[in-house]
Design a protein around this nucleic acid. Structure first.
Lengths: 167, 167
DNA sequence: ACAAACTTTCAATCCTTTCTGAATATACTG
DNA sequence: CAGTATATTCAGAAAGGATTGAAAGTTTGT
């Protein structure tokens, strides 16, 4: 049984989930796992959050796809249990990587597609703007890839940067 | 009158908009401005995109809030016209800053709120995880602030990083 | 092989968000 | 200042997504 404060947090996290492109249920389930001392099973999720089994099951699956929770087994129990990803950097990187894949990559692709297929006259403002946008996004992409691709390196960089050294 | 290829792009950008937390109409309007050689007025938007005036007006307003389009005036014409932000780095930074504000900041706030109000016993796994998550997010926040706060510095860094130097 | 647990699917329903269009406000012109 | 062009707002309609619950399917452990 959850305290009022915990419940409030779960609801708040859930509302935020909508802004994040994951849905309310998923975010609530995630919050529940973050707040749970013990691994959590499907039944607990449905009971505490008052959502259907189907919804709970799907949400857990999606959260696993995002890499922010993990399945664990408890010996002597046949059921599946879940815990939030314990490494918070991992969690943040997983989210960032997943969102890049879903939101950024397709946009860049759409743009390059357009540049290839629509025969936009060179020298026009539109052509110039689109190529510039594509270039800028590619640079961004490049940086994100490096950043998210090599965890250890990134952490080092992050810690260094956050440590007060001027960029 | 837009070519088929342009129309396809606009629709594609619109679908992506949904993933981005801005809605389809806003994203379509944005795409239209990106593709337009000339400044675009409200009427053009409603006609090309076949949306209501109200929707077009709201979308333009929101896009201005995001800082990805600008209002311009054409002498001799009383109406308002709009163009896409011409500086693509600016555009990307605006989007990043806006999204941080909407998605990241409230999450961090919710977390710190919880830590303050719910008296979670120190030494428990939950307490440890929550403080660690908060710390990690604060580091992230710090970096993002620096990065987005000083445009010139960031650009320099970006260009340097993308220029092949190993991190 | 059986049973317990979990997953998937899907139509019906509920809830949210988006869009419309008329009403309202604002700005410009002569 | 009256009249007209333009822009914005907002209540209600429409569309779109999420959730449920039940049924069918799958996996796992004994």
């Amino acid at each position: 049984m959850l305290s009022e404060e915990y419940k409030r947090f779960i609801e708040r996290w859930g509302s935020l989930g909508v802004l994040w492109g994951i849905n309310r249920s998923m975010a609530r389930v995630h919050a529940l796992l973050i707040l749970s001392e013990e691994p959590v099973g499907l039944d607990t999720v449905t009971e505490e959050l008052e959502i259907s089994r189907g919804n709970a099951s799907m949400s857990l699956k999606e959260l696993r796809n995002w890499g922010v929770i993990k399945r664990v087994s408890i010996s002597g129990d046949r059921r599946d249990f879940y815990v939030a990803e314990p490494d918070t950097w991992n969690m943040i990187f997983s989210i960032a990587a997943e969102r890049k894949k879903r939101e950024f990559d397709p946009a860049l692709e759409a743009l390059d597609n357009l540049l290839e297929n629509a025969e936009i006259e060179e020298g026009t403002g539109v052509h110039e703007r689109l190529t510039e946008l594509s270039d800028t996004m590619k640079t961004f992409d490049h940086i994100l890839k490096r950043f998210l691709g090599n965890e250890k390196v990134s952490r080092g960089l992050l810690e260094m940067l956050s440590g007060g050294k001027s960029i």
